[in-house]
Design a protein around this nucleic acid. Structure first.
Lengths: 196, 196
DNA sequence: CCCATCTTGAACTAAGCGGTTCAAGATGAG
DNA sequence: CTCATCTTGAACCGCTTAGTTCAAGATGGG
C-alpha cells in the first residue's frame, strides 16, 4: 500500500464526518478519527491538517450534501408549496431513518456546542443555519406568500427541522417525529388556503 | 472559613449547573467547576462525589426548577388552552432572554451529546423530555382535544420548544424565535376552533 | 532489477484530564 | 485556652489528549 497509490479522500472524509456527527467535536479524538477512517494518524495530519481543519472539511461536506437535497426538495415550491415543504422534511426524516448515518444532525450538534468551539467553526455553523432560513424564505416567496408570512414560516420550518434532530436523539419514534411535522404542514396548508 | 460553617450548597449547584449548561459535560473540567463554584477540587469531591454525580444533581435541579414553571404555565389549560400554550413557550423565551443564564437548554444540549455520555445520564435526559411530552399531552386533553390530536400537538409543542434552544444558540433573534412559536400557536388556535 | 516515492506504525513530547490523598491551617465549641 | 472539626491548597497518580517526527517497508516506474 505505498508507491504511487493513495487512499480515497472522499471515503475518508465520509468516515470522519460520521464520527464527528455521532460523537461531536469534543468527544472525537485523533485516535477515534484514525480508527473511523482506517487512516494512520500521520496520514490524517499530512492529508487534512489538524483536527480543526478536518472538522471544517466535514462540516462543508455535510452542508453541501444535504443542502443540495433540500434545494431539490424545495424546487417545486412555486407550483406546489405544500408538497415542497413535505419533501423538505422528508429529507430530514429519511436521513434520521437511514441506519448508515447517525441520528441527530451535525449542524445542530455543532451549534449546540458552539460556545466551546473555535470561532471559525461556530461562525460557519451559524451561516449554515442562516442559509437554511434563506432557502426556505425564497421557496415560500416563490409560492406567493406575503413577505411577513414567508419570513415567519421560514423561521418556523427551519426551527421545526432542527427540532427533529433533538427529538430523534431523545429517542422519539418515527410516528412522533412525523406528528411534529404534520402539525406544521397543517398550519402551512391552512395559510396557503387549502390548495395543493 | 473552617470550623463548623459551610459554603452554600444551593449556590454552588447553581454555578455548576450554569457551567455545564454553557459548555456541556465533555467540555467542563473539574478545574472549570472549581473556578465556577469558587470551591476547591477536594470540596467538590467530598460534597458531591465525582463529576458524573454532580452533573446528575445539576440536571435534576434544572428539570425540577423549569418543570415547575412549565406546570404552572399549563395549569390554566382546561379553561384557556391557547393562553396556557403561550405561557408555556414564554417560560422558554424568558429563560433565553435572561442574561443571568446561558441560552440553549441543558436538557437539549445533553440529549444531543447522549451517545458519549453515561447511560444513567442519557436515560435521565430522555426521561425529562418524555415528561415534557406527558405534561403537554395532559394539558391538551384537559382542554378537551381528541386523544390523537392531543398526542400530535404534544409532540409538536415539545419539539418546537426544543427547537428554540437550538435556534437561540444559532444566534436567532428574539423576533425569529417568536415567529417560530407564533406559527405553532396559530395552528393550535385553529384546532381549538378560534375560541380563547 | 533497482531506486525514487509514498505510506505506515511506532514512538515521543508536552499538556491536560478525572480522581484521590493529605498535611496545614482556620474556626468555633466547650 | 484547647481541642475536635472542617476547609483548603497542593501535590500526586495513571491515563488520554493533540500534535509531530522518522525510520522501515511496500510499491510501481523505468
Amino acid at each position: 500500500m505505498a508507491g504511487k497509490k493513495q487512499f480515497d479522500i472522499a471515503t475518508a472524509l465520509d468516515a470522519a464526518m460520521i464520527q464527528f456527527w455521532r460523537a461531536g467535536y469534543a468527544d472525537t479524538s485523533l485516535d477515534d478519527l484514525s480508527r473511523a477512517t482506517g487512516l494512520n494518524r500521520s496520514s490524517i495530519y499530512s492529508s487534512f491538517g489538524d483536527k480543526d481543519a478536518l472538522f471544517m472539511r466535514c462540516l462543508e461536506r455535510y452542508t453541501t450534501r444535504y443542502g443540495d437535497k433540500y434545494d431539490a426538495a424545495l424546487s417545486c415550491a412555486a407550483d406546489r408549496p405544500l408538497a415542497a415543504a413535505r419533501a423538505f422534511f422528508d429529507i430530514t426524516l429519511e436521513r434520521i431513518a437511514d441506519p448508515a448515518v447517525p441520528d441527530g444532525c451535525l449542524v445542530a450538534q455543532t451549534v449546540m456546542a458552539s460556545p466551546v468551539l473555535s470561532a471559525s467553526v461556530a461562525a460557519r455553523t451559524r451561516e449554515a443555519i442562516g442559509f437554511q432560513h434563506t432557502r426556505l424564505r425564497a421557496a415560500l416567496k416563490a409560492a406567493r406568500l406575503h413577505d411577513e408570512t414567508a419570513e415567519s414560516f421560514a423561521a418556523h420550518l427551519a426551527g421545526v427541522n432542527q427540532s427533529l434532530a433533538v427529538m430523534s436523539r431523545a429517542g422519539a419514534s418515527t410516528e412522533q417525529l412525523r406528528a411534529i411535522v404534520d402539525v406544521t404542514l397543517g398550519a402551512l396548508a391552512q395559510t396557503l388556503g387549502a390548495s395543493d
